[in-house]
Design a protein around this nucleic acid. Structure first.
Lengths: 258, 258
DNA sequence: GTGATCGTTGCATATTTTGCAATGACCATT
DNA sequence: AATGGTCATTGCAAAATATGCAACGATCAC
């Protein structure tokens, strides 16, 4: 819609790949060097881009800070966190909180396991959407046509022998998850890791987020992990209740006085 | 430099505070609603901004993904990580890697402690620059005039009774750190947490990054932590050697064929 | 000292963005 | 059901803004 901004933003993924100099940026944007320079300067003024000692550009600190701040200010996150911490204190395993957004599911909070062997994950990183328990819950609640459309769009990487293989299988799984109101991932992403997840709903009953408990086989078996299900669901419901109470109606934001 | 981009980027910190609707954005930018709309649309197309079901805007998934990707692609990070992991395996404590950039120091990698009581920190989050051991190392190597200028610019929050109180004290500390080639933070940020840090240098000897080991008093005393200093320094030197070897001359990036 | 590479600047052109005002969608209230 | 209000959206003409060019300058390697 706005050419200038469009070009400026196109620089970001380019720099995410690694540092680049002016000419490289100009070439990949297909604009004159001087144009690229001015765009980069503007980005620099905002701290989004950093100029290394060797003059090359890379993404800057403010970008990281922005991403952090945004996540910490998510309504759900603030409400959920104490509950997640409590659950972690009780069972000791890694607890995750995730949301869905335009074909991606990402972790927005995490309380680390107390055990030495831990699952790899990072806040802000997109999750394996076709296998993760939280992803199943979030997608299972999409309106039918969109759910189907998304499922068709996705890739189905075979992380392990138990990974979901295609859209049809995924939709079947989603239907089941939707029905039962909880989900699992038993070695679908990493052979030795299992998860149990439950949905967090807003006042209208829509799934607004999902939480999960994950643990590697070496710590607890899949069966043992499943015994935690009731507790996970109770935690998710507690969060839902609080969230629905606080953010049910899209909060009427006060207008500034003229 | 570029008004349009400037305005678009000004939206980001605004949304980082929390979701906002079109009118709020327009007001804070001091532009017409239609203008704000078009900017937001462009941001949306790039996934930088997300439109919630209630129509309000907030920062989007791609921003997080970008921040992640950028950090994972930092040259130093890739080189340092195995060394950090090894050190963590040996001592069990939390290990951090940090860089300096325009008045901020931020963690770009972290290996979590094996102990249940852990320090709070998050990759991408700016560190307490006036007290953190890694910050002292990074700032101590700035050219004298800039070091002074930065020290004057900073705030000196009193996190604890041992926090650095003002620019003068900070500069004295920096001189000491510069001299001895390593740094500590003994309860300057959080009463019960201590850190030992060592510098990572590029081929020219400049401090390019800094690493630290942190542990709470309840796990090891400050004195015990200090016994790790030689090991920390050795690790930092190993990383320096590898980094200098690989990235000494600003890597001549190949130009794309015309 | 010389040549080459890459970043930087001033300026005229015209493309792109802007603000306006009108329309439309949606919600709450009576 | 109807009405009033809030807020998002669109087309258009005016003008401000970004663009590419070409010349300059800095820096580095040879």
């Amino acid at each position: 819609m706005s050419q200038t901004v469009d070009r400026a933003l196109s620089i970001l993924p380019l720099l995410a790949e690694g540092p680049a100099n002016l000419e490289q940026v100009a070439q990949r944007l297909d604009v004159h060097k001087s144009t690229a320079l001015r765009l980069l300067r503007t980005l620099h003024e905002h701290g989004i881009v950093y100029r290394q000692p060797d003059q090359r550009y890379r993404l800057g600190a403010r970008l990281f800070a922005l991403a952090q701040e945004a996540m910490e200010n998510l309504d759900i996150r603030g409400i959920a966190h104490p509950h997640l911490a409590e659950l972690n204190a009780a069972c000791g395993h890694t607890v995750h909180l995730a949301v869905y957004e335009e074909d991606e599911v990402l972790y927005i909070d995490k309380v680390e396991s107390r055990y030495p062997v831990r699952m790899y994950s990072r806040i802000g990183k997109p999750v394996a959407i076709t296998v993760a328990a939280v992803a199943k819950l979030l997608l299972s609640d999409l309106p039918e046509p969109e759910r189907r459309a998304v499922a068709e769009r996705l890739d189905y990487p075979r992380y392990t022998a138990r990974s979901t293989t295609d859209a049809a299988a995924f939709l079947t799984e989603l239907a089941k998850v939707r029905e039962q109101g909880w989900a699992t991932d038993l070695g679908g992403h990493e052979e030795s890791i299992n998860c149990v997840a439950a949905p967090i709903r807003d006042a209208s009953g829509r799934v607004a987020a999902a939480m999960s408990v994950s643990a590697p086989n070496v710590v607890v078996s899949a069966d043992e992990l499943l015994t935690l299900l009731p507790r996970v669901r109770r935690t998710a419901e507690a969060i839902s209740a609080e969230y629905a109470g606080r953010a049910s109606t899209p909060p009427r934001t006060e207008r500034a006085a003229p």
